[in-house]
Deep mutational scan, measured.
Amino acid sequence: MLEGKVKWSNSEKGFGFIEVEGQDDVFVHFSAIQGEGFKTLEEGQAVSFEIVEGNRGPQAANVTKEA
């Protein structure tokens, strides 16, 4: 699992980007967020995730919010 911080997200469009130190930003779709209820990410929020190869390149999977 990698750790990063949410660079920005748009809940209306359903995606955002995660900033990882020393690496390119990672695309995240809201379907990759683990948990119940409305899935949102806040700018600056710490997250853990895996990287998978998506249709348009690397993207985050199994995203969990850190406490």
Rank of each mutant, 00 (worst) to 15 (best):
M1A: 09
M1L: 13
M1Q: 11
M1R: 15
M1P: 10
M1Y: 11
L2D: 04
L2Q: 09
L2R: 10
L2M: 11
E3M: 15
E3I: 15
G4F: 03
G4N: 02
G4M: 03
G4V: 04
G4W: 02
G4T: 00
K5L: 10
K5P: 04
K5T: 13
K5W: 12
K5Y: 12
K5C: 13
K5Q: 08
V6H: 03
V6A: 01
V6C: 07
V6P: 02
V6I: 12
V6W: 07
K7W: 05
K7E: 04
K7T: 06
K7C: 09
W8Q: 00
W8N: 02
W8F: 09
W8V: 03
S9F: 15
S9I: 15
S9D: 03
S9R: 08
S9V: 15
S9N: 05
N10A: 06
N10H: 08
N10E: 04
S11R: 13
S11M: 14
S11E: 10
S11F: 12
S11C: 14
S11I: 14
S11W: 13
E12V: 12
E12R: 11
E12Y: 10
E12S: 12
E12K: 14
K13P: 02
K13Q: 08
K13C: 12
K13D: 05
K13V: 06
K13S: 07
K13E: 06
G14Y: 10
G14K: 11
G14L: 09
G14W: 09
G14I: 06
F15A: 03
F15K: 00
F15Y: 14
F15L: 05
F15P: 01
F15I: 08
F15H: 03
G16D: 01
G16N: 02
G16Q: 00
F17Q: 03
F17P: 00
F17C: 07
F17L: 04
F17G: 00
F17I: 04
F17T: 02
F17H: 02
I18G: 01
I18C: 04
I18V: 03
I18W: 00
I18K: 00
E19I: 07
E19G: 09
E19F: 10
V20N: 02
V20E: 00
V20S: 05
V20F: 04
V20A: 05
V20W: 08
V20H: 03
E21C: 14
E21P: 13
E21V: 11
E21T: 11
G22K: 04
G22C: 09
Q23P: 02
Q23Y: 14
Q23D: 06
Q23T: 08
D24S: 13
D24A: 14
D24P: 15
D25T: 05
V26S: 00
V26Q: 01
V26Y: 03
V26D: 00
V26R: 01
V26F: 03
V26I: 11
V26P: 00
F27E: 01
F27V: 01
F27T: 01
F27I: 02
F27G: 00
F27M: 02
F27C: 06
V28L: 06
V28E: 02
V28H: 02
V28M: 07
H29D: 05
H29M: 06
F30R: 01
F30D: 02
F30N: 04
S31D: 05
S31Y: 04
A32M: 08
A32I: 03
A32Y: 06
A32L: 03
A32C: 07
A32R: 00
A32E: 07
A32F: 06
A32T: 08
I33V: 11
I33S: 02
I33G: 04
Q34R: 11
Q34P: 06
Q34K: 12
Q34S: 10
Q34G: 09
G35T: 09
G35P: 05
G35R: 00
G35K: 04
G35F: 06
G35A: 07
G35W: 10
E36C: 14
E36Q: 10
E36K: 09
E36D: 13
E36R: 06
G37C: 11
G37N: 07
G37Y: 07
F38I: 13
F38N: 13
F38V: 13
F38H: 12
F38D: 13
F38S: 13
K39L: 10
K39S: 09
K39T: 09
K39A: 10
T40A: 09
T40N: 10
T40F: 13
T40K: 09
T40C: 14
L41P: 01
L41M: 06
E42Q: 13
E42K: 12
E42G: 07
E42R: 13
E42A: 11
E42N: 10
E42I: 13
E43Y: 14
E43F: 13
G44T: 03
G44Q: 04
G44A: 03
G44C: 07
G44H: 05
Q45T: 10
Q45D: 15
Q45C: 10
Q45E: 13
Q45G: 06
Q45F: 05
A46R: 15
A46K: 14
A46Q: 12
A46G: 10
A46M: 14
V47I: 06
V47A: 00
V47Q: 02
S48A: 09
S48G: 05
S48D: 03
F49L: 05
F49P: 00
F49Q: 01
F49C: 03
E50N: 13
E50K: 09
E50L: 12
E50M: 13
E50T: 14
E50D: 08
E50F: 13
E50G: 05
I51W: 04
V52A: 07
V52F: 08
V52Q: 08
V52D: 02
E53I: 15
E53K: 10
E53T: 12
E53H: 13
G54H: 06
G54R: 05
G54N: 06
G54L: 06
G54M: 06
G54W: 06
G54F: 07
N55C: 15
N55E: 12
N55W: 14
R56H: 11
R56L: 09
R56M: 08
R56Y: 13
G57A: 04
G57N: 01
G57T: 04
G57S: 05
G57D: 02
G57I: 00
P58Q: 08
P58F: 09
P58G: 03
P58S: 07
P58L: 10
P58R: 12
P58T: 07
Q59G: 02
Q59S: 06
Q59L: 06
Q59C: 09
A60Y: 02
A60E: 02
A60P: 01
A60I: 02
A60T: 02
A61C: 11
A61F: 09
A61Q: 09
A61R: 07
A61P: 00
A61N: 08
N62Y: 07
N62M: 07
N62R: 08
N62T: 06
N62V: 05
V63M: 02
V63Q: 01
V63T: 02
V63Y: 00
V63E: 04
T64D: 05
T64E: 07
T64Y: 13
T64I: 14
K65R: 09
K65V: 15
K65D: 03
K65H: 10
K65M: 13
E66T: 15
E66K: 15
E66H: 15
E66G: 14
E66I: 15
A67N: 13
A67Q: 12
A67L: 13
A67F: 12
A67D: 12
